[in-house]
Each structure stands twice: as structure tokens, then as C-alpha cells.
Amino acid sequence: MAEASQAQWEPKIIGFLCNWCSYAGADLCGVSRYQYPTNVRAVRVMCSTRISPHLVLDILKAGADGVLLGGCHIGDCHYISGNYYTEKRVRLMKRLLEESGVEPERLRLEWVSASEGEKFSKIVTDFTEQVRKLGPSKVKKDEKLRSRVAAADDASETFRLKALVGRELNLVNKGNVYNNKLDPAELDRIIDSATEEEFERSLILELSMSKPRSVKELGEIMEVPTDKVLRHIVALRQKNMIAMEHPEGFTPTYKTIVIGGEQ
């Protein structure tokens, strides 16, 4: 039966296309009658940069099997530099997907100009096949995976990652406040380690939301060394995001602080 359902399954893919280039390219593709699979549901946005990691991760949580992002070629952005940011953000999204255990290949960023109708059809065809090979996304059904994606989602929303990724371009291209241009590799290293940290911290919060957990338990579930888990808990407690439960025996447990909203 599994094979049968596998055979009947069709990947659900969401496409975000920028108004000025890729959406226009898709239009041209239609005009030119290039065919491509029906799996992509396109959403028009003014610029690819509108798409936050949160949106993408949310879509994956909601059951999408793949997300395609289309923007103008580098240097062509209608809004001058939007796609540079998209590029940096997609790098972050892929890192977060990797962290969470979702195949990063479920997300693809492509530059499609208004004159590249044919290219657009090839991209959609190719991406659909790629997602088909990956099989149905397990995010919705697999509880463990879902919590990891949720953690990735939370991590993507942290000010730290937003700030680092948001500033990356200026720091590398235009120079920082000291008029130094940062080495992109060095900055990538900083962002990568921040991504890993923020993801793992978000996962700790996610896992400790419903029940208190010990460092060892978290380490086991997350497959992260326990000393590292503890260091994350230190940082989270500095931010007042997790609290120690009264320890019974020798193993304290921690519970996420659910922030009370407006009554």
C-alpha cells in the first residue's frame, strides 16, 4: 500500500515570485507555451526579499513539500539590493533546515529574469523532480521533526540572527562603522555559529515547553553533547527564557517560561 500511495502522491510546492523579474518570467513562459509540472502554486510578491525564513518554515510546517523562491538576477533587483538580502537569508534558511533535519534541497532559490521564460519552465520541472525524489515531507506527521522545524522557525525570528543576516551585506560590501570591509568567510563563520546556537536554544525551549526536561534528556533527544546543552541553558536563563524546576535527586530539570501576554 505504501508504494501505491507513494505513486499517487504529488509534491506540493509553493513558489514565491518577485513581481518584476521571476513573475514576469513565468508569464513569458506561459506566453511562450513552455510546459512544466502543475505542482507549483505561485504567489506573487513585490520582491523576493519579502520572504522571511519564518514564512518558509511555516509553509513547511503546514505541509508543503518544497518551496521555490524566484528573484531578479543579482544586480537587476528593482529595489536595488533586495535579492542580495534574499540570497543571504536563503543561506540562513538552508542552514536552519539542515539543523532541523529537513532536507535543504526542499528549498530552492533561482534568479529568473523577465525574459527567461524557458529557463523558468526548466527550473520548475527540475525542482519538482528533485522534490519528488525526496518524497513527501515528514514535517507535519513526525512530531520530532515538527518540533525541530518549529525551533528553526523560532531561531529565525531571533533578533540576533535577523540582525546578523540583515547587516551582512553592508558589512561585507560597504564596510562597517569603522570603515573596514569584513571578510565574508569570517562573517559567514560568525553567522553559522550563531545559527547553530540559536537553533539549539530554540529547540531546547520547544522541547521543554510541555514538560520539564533535564540536560541529559535534552542532549539525548537533540543529539547534542550535554555540556553544550548546559551552556545553552545558561544563556537562556540569562535571558529569562527558561527556569530551573526544583531538582529531585541529582538531576535538575528545566521548563520553558511561557511569557504571559496581555490579559
Binding site: S214, V215, K216, T226, V234, R237, P247, F250, T251, P252
Partner: peptide, 17 residues
Amino acid sequence: GPYFGAVLRPSDGDIPE
């Protein structure tokens, strides 16, 4: 301090006996 006053093992967060 890091553990808000609790004495914990840096390796796994257990209270050392």
C-alpha cells in the same frame, strides 16, 4: 553566575554529589 547559584556539572548539568 551561569547556573543562577546552583552547583552543576559543566558536562551534563547534573548536581555533583
